[in-house]
Design a protein around this nucleic acid. Structure first.
Lengths: 221, 221
DNA sequence: ACGGTACTCGACACCCTGTCGAGTTGGTCG
DNA sequence: CGACCAACTCGACAGGGTGTCGAGTACCGT
């Protein structure tokens, strides 16, 4: 018996209980969604499409998910978890080397989201409308920001980084930059960076922001 | 069979011709949209709401705009123009002082978009679905990026800024950062910066990125 | 064999969009 | 003045999507 779902506070999204055959259906819906998202935009996919693809009727779909959005949210949950794990592994690997840690973390996140462009795009399209997606995303960004801020403070404490605006503020700016640039690149929004330049460019901004001073004063007018 | 549409390249979108009374209606629709966006999300506003608000029937609405999105696009057009103008003025005011120019430009853009939060949010919610909104936004960002890149190259040429990644790549990253952080702040998305800190923090990242070196080498691994 | 729970779906009520065609109005011209 | 035409208006319709309800069916443990 798969336990009654160890859903953390914030409540279960999805269906009520677990049953053998039902699990397959749920997976089929998820798989169909992933597959269709590879072809068209979320807005062009109806609940009926999802249901048909999973071999069930539309009303039955609602037994498994409360809405189309909930399916994307479930998918996003998985990808976010993957990103988190892969990023954490990179940080662990880098040990005390903060710069290497940032490089590895950025690489991990970039790879995860580029590998799931379709989902990334769909999730982005839900941000304006879905509180749940927004909450999940906020939570992820919040974690990244907190970790970044802590690292910056560490570098400042050991004298490696100069003082400046609150570490958290810099962390907020840098992490949103990463998010947006990766997103633009993943979806082909112009202007964007070439995929191969992402890491180098973003990392340069991070390092200069954290370690660089403000340079020489402006030239007299 | 779409009508010939005498639309000059990139020109006015909206209805076909000009007539006295019709202009009032068009304005009424725009005004209603702006007003309603102050209360609820775009997705919760129907064409009927817009029509009623403007004192016309739903079919009549379609005489003036091809869709709800087109109304937002028209509104966005105005705000973007305002941002452009105000930004250009700031740059002009700063003359040769590149740093002052960036500060003024950022301030102008920030003020414009914070002053139109509702519209900003609505436009953002259309980005995933509307090609037109995407195109308009891309065009704006492209202009900002091009100008930024040119300025960076100028600073490098006169020896004020150190070399590094292509100026354009840095410009892309920095401008998307501004966009995203301003947006997060305007919509209350967490994590975000306090409105009063926006300018200082973003400008610090810009200056350090453009003028700062990469700091001392990493601690030996 | 029986009762319950998981699951299924046809049918329905709604809401929204976009269009069509039959008007109405107001300015212009013979 | 009247007749015309373009601008404008809207009732009615068709179509497509969502979410729900209630009447089933399948399978479990007892």
């Amino acid at each position: 018996m798969a336990a009654p779902l160890p859903v953390p506070p914030g409540g279960s999204r999805g269906r009520r209980a677990r049953r053998p055959s039902g699990d397959d259906r749920e997976r089929a819906i998820l798989a169909t969604a992933e597959e269709l998202l590879g072809r068209r935009a979320l807005a062009d996919i109806s609940v009926d499409d999802l249901a048909r693809g999973a071999g069930i009727s539309r009303p039955t779909f609602y037994f498994y998910f409360p809405s189309k959005d909930a399916v994307v949210l479930a998918l996003l949950d998985r990808v976010v978890e993957e990103a988190r794990a892969s990023r954490a592994a990179a940080l662990r690997r880098a040990g005390d080397d903060v710069r290497a840690g940032w490089r590895g973390a950025l690489e991990a996140v970039r790879d995860t989201f580029l590998a799931h462009r379709a989902l990334t795009t769909a999730a982005a399209s839900l941000l304006p409308t879905s509180v749940e997606v927004r909450a999940l995303w906020s939570q992820v960004m919040e974690q990244f920001v907190a970790e970044t801020a802590a690292a910056i403070e560490g570098e400042r404490a050991r004298g490696a980084a100069p003082p400046g605006p609150p570490a958290r503020d810099l962390a907020v700016a840098l992490n949103w930059m990463d998010e947006r640039v990766i997103h633009a690149t993943a979806t082909g929004t112009t202007p964007a960076l070439a995929e191969d330049d992402l890491l180098d460019v973003l990392l340069t901004v991070w390092l200069r922001t954290v370690y660089g001073g403000d340079g020489p004063a402006a030239a007299p007018g």
